[in-house]
Each structure stands twice: as structure tokens, then as C-alpha cells.
């Protein structure tokens, strides 16, 4: 999977206008519903690094009667960096880090039951796909939710299809692994 760049996403959110850390976190979680939610600490350190690299700067601080909050805005360098990143092609699947395959091979090596493992993994995948489908078919689901659910569903579906063909060829694989 392609690693999401938190600094570019925060720069992107800042492009809409100055904002403070907590607001950025809330807008991120709203905009990317199926992604892992950002930790507040991560938002804070990333913003500091952006300021250090001259891509963002501090707009000011206000307290609004509550705790003191720092507002950030993007710089011209930041806008340039963001435009460059957004136009860059994401490398298509650069590393095949297939945990499922690793577990199947290890299971064969250690005399385990790879077939039972694949069955259980398949059930877990299906369960997650049902959850995601329920999220996207719920009444009033917005398009961002549907699209991000679709992205996940398609990846899980690809895993499933790979597991199906692997399960059908386990005998050959076992022979190959055992003789190697």
C-alpha cells in the first residue's frame, strides 16, 4: 500500500485557509472517512516541521476564552511543494509486502494448516467487506464515504481473489516449499 504523506495532506488542508491544529485534525477525519484517524500529537509535530522547512508559518494565536491555540497558514514554498506532490504519480505497488502469503509459507514450513488459515482469513475479509458495504449503503452516506469504502472494498476483493486461487493451488505450493 502507498504510504499517505501526512505533511502534504495538512498542507492541502491549509491551502483552503489558515487553520489551527485541532481544526485540521477534525477536517482530515471528515474528509478521509475510512483512513486511520490522525492523532493530535502527530498533527502538532508535523506542523512544527512544516514551519521549520519554511512551507508553513504561524499566523497568530488566539484563546477564544479557552486554551491558547496557534493558527498556521501555508507559505508560497508550501503551495509550490503541494502542487508538485499532487501532480506526482504515485508509484504503482512499489513493494509487495504480502503478509498473508508470508503466513501461508510459514505455515507450510512449520507443518501448520495453511488451508484453515486461508479460510479464517477469508471470513475475516468478508466480515470487513460487509461492514464497509453497510457503511456505504447506509441512508444519507455522502460520496466521500462511498468512494473511500469502495477503495477499501476493491483492495479486499483483490486479496480475496488471490486467496481463492492460492487455496486451490496449495498442494502444488506445499510440494514446492517442502522440496526447496
Amino acid at each position: 500500500m502507498i504510504r499517505m504523506s501526512t505533511r502534504h495532506i495538512l498542507l492541502g488542508l491549509l491551502a483552503a485557509g489558515p487553520s489551527h491544529g485541532y481544526d485540521l485534525k477534525r477536517r482530515h477525519d471528515e474528509r478521509f472517512p475510512q483512513a486511520r484517524p490522525l492523532a493530535y500529537g502527530q498533527v502538532y509535530t508535523t506542523l512544527q516541521r512544516l514551519v521549520r522547512d519554511g512551507l508553513a508559518e504561524i499566523e497568530g494565536t488566539d484563546s477564544d476564552g479557552g486554551p491558547e491555540r496557534t493558527t498556521y497558514r501555508s507559505t508560497e514554498d508550501g503551495a509550490r511543494e503541494l502542487a508538485q506532490w499532487a501532480g506526482e504519480i504515485a508509484p504503482p505497488a512499489p513493494f509487495v509486502t504480502n503478509e498473508i502469503f508470508a503466513k501461508v509459507v510459514v505455515s507450510i514450513l512449520s507443518g501448520g494448516d495453511p488451508e484453515a488459515y486461508l479460510r479464517a482469513q477469508r471470513a475475516a475479509h468478508m466480515e470487513r467487506m460487509r461492514e464497509l458495504t453497510a457503511v456505504k449503503t447506509a441512508h444519507g452516506a455522502d460520496l466521500a464515504t462511498v468512494l473511500s469504502a469502495d477503495y477499501a472494498l476493491n483492495h479486499l476483493d483483490a486479496d480475496l481473489r488471490w486467496m481463492t486461487t492460492t487455496a486451490a493451488r496449495l498442494t502444488t505450493l506445499t510440494a514446492e516449499v517442502d522440496t526447496a
Binding site: 475479509h125 468478508m126 467487506m129 460487509r130 464497509l132 458495504t133 449503503t137 472494498l153 476493491n154 479486499l156 476483493d157 480475496l160 481473489r161
Partner: peptide, 8 residues
């Protein structure tokens, strides 16, 4: 599988 995921 994506169609099956609509089921309970």
C-alpha cells in the same frame, strides 16, 4: 465477493 458483501 463485493456483491456477496451486501448480504448479512
Amino acid at each position: 465477493a463485493q456483491v456477496a458483501a451486501y448480504a448479512d
